[in-house]
Nucleic acid binder design. Structure first.
Length: 411
DNA sequence: TCTGGGGTCCTAGGACCC
DNA sequence: TCTGGGGTCCTAGGACCC
């Protein structure tokens, strides 16, 4: 029998912003951007939630619902920093800690009784240590499975602790709406409602064969979840260190839709650079590059290409994604969003590199140097892709990577 | 309501191979 | 050449999560 903690930071982004600006405390605060910008709410303070504002809501809608709210731009570096601090606190309670996202974690607390006492006492100690060392509140769910621990931390919010005694899982879940089950979103909820299934208990009372016929593999997992089991998928794994990422991507939504080729291609260059940098940070090489393109009417396409050889070099990514872009953009149609995604990672680089005259090695050195400059002076310090200069050289003999640069400066 | 950005996992069809 | 079945890789799209 396991003891799993799910620790979820309360209104994380808002709470971090309050540490930097205590005058925000207790006020309706919306993090994610300005009231008249394109974008959605990343986090809303509890005061703002009273007006109906919630995360994922368009900023302009939030403004209509709560015009007096204070709109704050997000600060990802701050959140990463506080996420690390929280992680450090959690590590002092169990060696088996797994961050599930920037503001939530699972701990396997099985067998820690001698050290930390029974679950509720350990949770209280954790809660006060978290507040003392980060200034942030969290909620803790305790159960025998990840799934029930997660649902119970949600029920404990804000700033609470909830322990589901072993054996009581199904009883705890039964009265909750099906939407409370992680993995059940808008679409599944609607499908379940159409079958007259509104509460987890309705699901639990069904023959699992019925759900399997209806929803396939997912239906079977759903039957297990309704009983409080970590049935299938990611939930069904041991709590431990996170593995390497399976994809790395960046995307950008324009403030104003555009059909300007220079703007579009320099954006792709910039995105390729950002992705390349992350690949190098992780020591990963990618074989598959994907372009994402969203038109003004919100129709979205993705186009991917897999290469023979894995790479982590910006210009290789840009070259591939530009081919995809030129081959798939319906020229003249205004674009709302562009994205660059990489996947199919390899840890080590292919042998082929040794054979190509070392030009890749030189590039890697240059890129690492550029990364260090960015670390020191900020993201805008170096731009190999000549991002916003708006013009690109074609691939030639002298310029095999198709790099920009050596262009006369236009500014 | 006028819809971000970063991810994960699943499905389904076609290519290709044995 | 009138033809099965399985495995794996690739691509596109979609649901979902924070």
């Amino acid at each position: 029998m396991k003891t799993i903690f799910h620790v979820d930071m309360d209104a994380f982004f808002v709470s971090v912003e309050e540490l930097f600006d205590p005058s925000l405390r207790g006020k309706p605060v919306v993090v994610g951007g300005q009231y008249d910008e394109r974008g959605v709410v990343s986090a809303a303070s509890y005061a703002a939630r009273k007006f109906g504002v919630h995360s994922a809501m368009p900023l302009r809608t939030a403004y209509k619902m709560c015009p007096l709210a204070i709109f704050v731009d997000g600060h990802p570096e701050r959140y990463r920093e506080y996420s690390k601090r929280a992680y450090t606190v959690l590590q002092s309670f169990s060696p088996l800690v797994e961050m599930a996202s920037i503001d939530e974690a699972y701990l396997d607390m099985t067998g820690t009784e001698r050290l930390h006492g029974p679950p509720l006492r350990a949770a209280h100690a954790l809660h006060s240590a978290m507040h003392a060392r980060t200034g942030l509140n969290c909620s803790v769910g305790i159960a025998t499975s990840r799934l029930v621990a997660k649902v119970s931390s949600d029920q404990a919010k804000p700033n609470g602790i909830l322990w589901i005694i072993p054996g009581q899982e199904a009883r705890f879940l039964a009265p909750l709406e099906v939407r409370k089950i992680p993995g059940v979103g808008k679409v599944t909820e609607k499908n379940l409602h159409e079958l007259g299934l509104r509460r987890v208990g309705d699901l639990a009372a069904l023959d699992e064969k019925y759900l399997e016929r209806r929803f396939g593999k997912w239906g079977l997992a759903l039957a297990g979840k309704s009983q409080g089991l970590d049935a299938g998928g990611w939930f069904d794994t041991e709590v431990g260190e996170r593995e390497d990422p399976k994809s790395i991507s960046h995307e950008h939504t324009f403030n104003v839709d555009t059909a300007d080729v220079d703007t579009l291609e320099s954006t792709l260059a910039k995105l390729s650079e950002m992705v390349g940098r992350r690949l190098r940070e992780h020591g990963l090489y990618t074989r598959t590059v994907q372009l994402k393109l969203r038109y003004s009417d919100f129709t979205t396409i993705t186009r991917a290409h897999s290469m023979d050889r894995a790479t982590q070099i910006d210009t290789d990514l840009f070259e591939q994604v530009r081919v995809l872009f030129r081959g798939n953009w319906k020229a003249g149609m205004t674009i709302r969003l562009l994205g660059v995604q990489t996947s199919s990672f390899e840890k080590l680089q292919g042998q082929m590199d040794l054979l190509d005259g070392g030009h890749h090695d030189k590039w890697r050195e240059a890129l690492n140097a550029a990364d260090r400059l960015r670390d020191k002076y900020g993201e805008s310090a170096v731009s190999l892709a000549a991002g916003m200069k708006g013009r690109f050289r074609e691939r030639t003999h002298e310029n095999p990577a198709g790099l920009p640069g050596k262009e006369p400066r236009r500014d």
